[in-house]
Design a protein around this nucleic acid. Structure first.
Lengths: 167, 167
DNA sequence: CAAGATTGATGGCTCAATCTTC
DNA sequence: GAAGATTGAGCCATCAATCTTG
């Protein structure tokens, strides 16, 4: 649909600000990125290690903790996911013996997820290939200042989606 | 796999090039964007018009054609999707009367998708809210040069995922 | 057989409802 | 009642297999 098509068909509502050509080109390119990059990352991890990109992220976050332990809601925040999604994923990981859940004793409704030895081994095995893929597709594919710009952009957009979320 | 050099032949696998702190920060921010932005776009279109972002894209592409018609594989290319995904989506859209499929007469195995009047009305109704959302979350949230950088980045990454794909 | 397209099975994600503990 | 977390239903995407036509 072009601006002209819509302009002629709506007379009552205020005319929205359509995108300029440059804005549109930037947005279309970004949309292609949003559609393709997650699939490309998933494909590598799935083929070589039977992991989803998101499963990998969860285990990677746990592996960075001194005791390989983190509360569910903190993992959700660290991986930018909903608690519901995380719960489903951790359940699957637990069924595979990669993660273990435990109610925090004496402190109520909270739950910790703990990376098992098998889980750690899995992350350690998967990390090099995953990092190589991230380098190949993104980090080494763009100049350093563009990567810095991507960081600024991403932080600005995420902030607009979830205003006032902790980093 | 990637740009690992083969300096030594006697020891175990070469240590991969891990990400520097800046690279890691850029990548983590980008990952958050990949996880959150699609959901935010879907949420708006779903709540206000009962459409997926991808369904909207398909109909928007058709609405830009002079005869509202495009071959399936061309739609797939324009929306950066697989033919399989597209086929499922078009089937759903056809069941809702928004799109119609027709075998190209006399020219074989190809299929055209045509946007119906109801489909066009649907796109026209959804476009202003969608564009407003894209502006709010991305276009108006970052400076113009950052948007230009995002375009460069996206095109570079997509090219690495699908080398030599037509634009 | 190859290209264009479709289909079915499988598995993941979202939404809303629920459970538990404070 | 509210926060943390889980669950089930339903929808959507992916993968591999299939169909059709040139």
């Amino acid at each position: 649909v072009t601006s002209d098509d819509l302009a002629t068909s709506s007379s009552a509502a205020a005319e929205p600000r359509w995108l300029t050509d440059d804005e549109r080109a930037g947005w279309m390119a970004a949309a292609a990125l949003l559609i393709k990059l997650p699939g490309a990352l998933d494909a590598q991890l799935q083929a070589e290690h039977g992991l989803t990109f998101f499963e990998y992220m969860v285990m990677a976050v746990l592996s960075e903790q001194p005791d390989r332990t983190l509360q569910m809601s903190d993992i959700a925040a660290a991986t930018s996911s909903s608690l519901s999604r995380l719960s489903h994923v951790v359940k699957r990981l637990e069924a595979r013996g990669l993660v273990r859940r435990e109610r925090i004793p004496g402190a109520g409704r909270r739950t910790n997820a703990v990376l098992t030895d098998a889980g750690l081994a899995q992350v350690v095995a998967a990390a090099p290939g995953h990092v190589a893929r991230v380098r190949d597709l993104l980090v080494d594919a763009v100049p350093a200042d563009d990567l810095a710009a991507l960081r600024r952009i991403s932080e600005a957009v995420v902030e607009r989606i979830d205003p006032g979320r902790p980093c």
